[in-house]
Design a binder for these strands. Structure first.
Lengths: 327, 327
DNA sequence: GGACCACCTACAAACGTTTACCTATGAGTT
DNA sequence: AACTCATAGGTAAACGTTTGTAGGTGGTCC
């Protein structure tokens, strides 16, 4: 029923080879033949079968993207840009949501492997050794994670943490709580790394609490624990948790920022529209999405091309939730 | 280099047919042979080539999803559930973001068509006739849009609008503004339909303004226009616009809800965490995503199965932005 | 006028599966 | 003992492309 290359060939009174070449290597066929063939292909609404094509060429024209949570705007920000850049380059995008389960992440990559030319993996949970194993069979590029031998698009969250602590320290805060996210998440580790460095440099006291679920409810829960620590400022793992903290403080009649300062990470839409607006570290999700695709495509174009770990800068955006500590 | 069915067959000393059957129709092969074959396939890490398989069977095991904006949490809410349900049923998901451009939407569907078994289309912009044309070559299921002859998962936004107007009317509002979204968007039309019905029933006066961009900036812009209309309540096209309205009202020192009431649609995360919290119509995105997949899969299982238009209920969630009009 | 060449186009193999059809084996029936 | 029949597994065609190789045409050069 669907129209094949043979139908076009018959109508154009040429061989299938000529039709194929007219479409994929135009200079190899006489111009008048080519135009006749193309006209007929167009008239018939002919579309080459990707399955047949990929069977013979070994290329699919697709890339895969595996993420821990499609409900999180941080990841969909990356997704949006990945899809845009891929589309621009003529690639389709396969999507997989692992629901934060490392086992699912691995299985997703494996099941995608044969239908895509390469995979973008954003997987905080999975182990380095597993990633290396996956990379043996698939062209991989990592997002927000550094594993040797595999290209990666990174965001400098450690730097963001440093900026946050410097900011709070400059305001006069001396006791700060960090509400930690998932313990083995890569970006959580990065933040802790930045934290230690900044602590050393500024001499402020930072209490790490948690881990908490990186969600609204996690923030609500963390808020009370942080208060019990008697701190004057809180750094939340991400904006969503910060909103939870904010809501809980409001309930407990604690004035942010006058009694307590609050910062976080991500700078999602609502960071700018909550009340008070959130001081937060903007993550370069857009650039990271595009960069990841570019890294993958250049790896595909030339598998011998060098492995690149490129880190994109973060920026602390000071808004309404931070101020000097109470006297 | 990659291991094929032939490698497994050779090692197991059986024909490729037997390997194929051991994997896809186990009861057709003797248990001891089957187990031997499976063990070897497993040991070799054999994965059938989807291209070859799909070439012969005509099935891909994938579905496509085309949406207007992956940055909008409303759509990614659907996406998350689509992917989850599809994964559950062993299907992969191809994603396309049209950036609200109808031409891109159509092209995305066409270019996906051959690599998926069916497409879920969430496309407010494209014309009915184009959809019908697409449905001729592809198994389609629509999201939030009703076209005869094509199954659809719908959300009752008209009902949501009715609930909103009844709520405002009950509070005593008599002059209301509706901030319209994209003019030819299907859900905007639905909302207008609900609006007319509710106006007729309750007798309140509703001024439709716009269209506005369904974004934060659109809300900011719309806010001033609405105030000029001298209304006591505003119904925004969606939450994001409502946040824009809220911000602008705050700037102009207008007290919500005491001087002005505000409602909207979607009930995204931040509706519950803005200040004041948003009264809004919750859309059943989760259920809609799952339903859409189910409709598509049942259509794929039996192309003769009846076309279904299933409408999911919406619910007005009353929070902080609505109250009685000023005396 | 024959040799060489450039240019087109056709032929056919190959990609990795699934599946219709056929054969071989052995058990059960008469 | 001959027949039927179920079961297991092999053979080979088919799916729709791409691409290496070969053939055929007409022009240019000696």
């Amino acid at each position: 029923m669907p129209v094949t290359i043979r139908d076009v060939a018959r109508e154009a009174k040429v061989s299938v080879a000529t039709v194929s070449r007219a479409l994929s290597s135009p200079h190899q066929v006489n111009q008048v033949t080519r135009e006749r063939v193309l006209a007929i292909a167009d008239r018939f609404g002919y579309r080459p079968s990707p399955a047949a094509r990929s069977l013979i060429t070994g290329k699919t024209g697709n890339i895969g993207l595996v993420m821990p949570d499609l409900a999180n705007p941080f990841f969909t920000g990356v997704l949006k840009n990945v899809q845009a850049r891929a589309h621009q380059s003529g690639y389709g995008v396969f999507i997989g949501d692992s629901d934060e389960d490392p086992a699912v992440e691995e299985e997703l990559v494996r099941s995608m492997a044969k239908q895509v030319d390469g995979v973008l993996l954003c997987s905080p949970g999975i182990k380095d050794s597993q990633i290396t194993a996956l990379a043996a069979n698939t062209t991989l590029v990592l997002l927000n994670r550094r594993v040797r031998g595999i290209s990666a698009a990174l965001m400098d969250s450690a730097g963001g943490m440093r900026q946050s602590i410097e900011h709070l320290s400059a305001l006069g805060h001396r006791r700060i709580a960090f509400l930690s996210g998932p313990r083995n998440s890569w970006s959580n580790k990065q933040r802790l790394r930045g934290l230690r460095a900044a602590v050393e440099q500024t001499g402020v006291e930072v209490h790490t609490l948690g881990p908490f679920a990186p969600r609204y409810s996690g923030g609500v829960q963390a808020a009370d624990l942080a208060l019990a620590e008697n701190v004057t400022a809180i750094i939340a793992y991400n904006d969503i948790m910060a909103l939870g903290v904010l809501a809980r403080m409001h309930e407990r009649d604690i004035d942010v920022p006058n009694e307590l300062s609050l910062t976080s990470f991500d700078d999602l839409v609502y960071a700018a529209v909550s009340a008070p607006t959130l001081t937060t570290v903007a993550m370069p999700v857009d650039a990271a999405g595009r960069l990841a695709v570019d890294l993958l495509l250049s790896r595909l174009a030339d598998p011998g091309s060098p492995v690149v770990h490129q880190e994109l800068p973060t920026r602390l955006i000071v808004r309404g939730t931070t101020g000097p500590p109470p006297k």
